[in-house]
């Protein structure tokens, strides 16, 4: 409760200071976001592809997202953007299969962030293992707009981890990878490490987890939030 209030205050404050209209509108909406159950809260699932794991050195090279309304993923809202980076993708290409020449033809990071925050307006974020990606986004925002916005996030990894701990299911290394958890919920196997596919996969997983946590009525989201 306190956290939410703090977050709201921060957002409104940042919105006033922000000179970029897209981000300002996002922040404004973010401060007064209504959070109810999964069917009545607009959501956006996001995933990034990175050249590496170090946010000081590495860069975002792709962003993918999809929106959820009324508890259903709207496939029409799918978006996938390749971002140009000045740094070589290097060995990370083996993971996301993006080559330097493709990356070179990508959009500028600013354009990508603009689109992302426009899509995320009035929406709660869903990410799998949120900490890493949010870190990169914050860093990017800093150089883009000079401010570091706050985020309210449903982290599917964290929710699943807590769920398992509560049910005393032992968790081993690798068990909480996106693909592994999806298998448990009977979701189809996708090729991992495409930003859009992963975002979609995360969105589906969120719906599955929600139905598992509370199968009688739509899941109340407030207890599962994580603030960044």
């Amino acid at each position: 409760m306190l956290q939410r209030w703090k977050h709201g205050r921060r957002c409104h404050g940042l919105a006033r200071r922000c000179s970029l209209p897209v981000l300002a509108e996002y922040l404004d909406a973010c401060g007064s976001l209504k959070i109810d159950d999964i069917e009545n809260t607009p959501l956006i699932a996001v995933d990034l592809e990175l050249t590496g794991l170090d946010k000081e050195q590495d860069q975002i090279i792709a962003i993918g997202w999809t929106q959820i309304d009324d508890g259903r993923i709207r496939l029409g809202s799918n978006r996938y953007l390749v971002i140009n980076a000045d740094k070589s993708v290097g060995s990370s290409a083996a993971i996301h299969e993006l080559m330097d020449h493709e990356v070179a033809q990508g959009e500028d990071l600013e354009v990508g962030l603009g689109e992302l925050f426009e899509a995320a307006r009035d929406r709660l974020w869903i990410l799998h293992h949120a900490g890493l990606d949010i870190g990169f986004i914050k860093k990017a925002c800093e150089s883009w707009a000079g401010i570091i916005p706050g985020f309210i996030v449903l982290d599917t990894l964290r929710i699943e981890y807590r769920l398992r701990k509560r049910r005393e299911i032992p968790v081993k290394q690798g068990d909480l990878q996106l693909g592994q958890i999806r298998e448990v919920y009977g979701l189809p196997g996708y090729t991992a490490h495409n930003a859009l596919t992963d975002a979609l996969a995360t969105a589906e997983l969120m719906l599955a987890i929600a139905s598992r946590l509370d199968s009688d009525s739509p899941l109340k989201l407030k207890p599962h939030l994580k603030f960044f």
Partner: peptide, 11 residues
């Protein structure tokens, strides 16, 4: 057609 689709999960 695909753009009109909505995905939902049912336990």
């Amino acid at each position: 057609i695909a753009r009109k689709l909505e995905a939902a999960y049912y336990p």
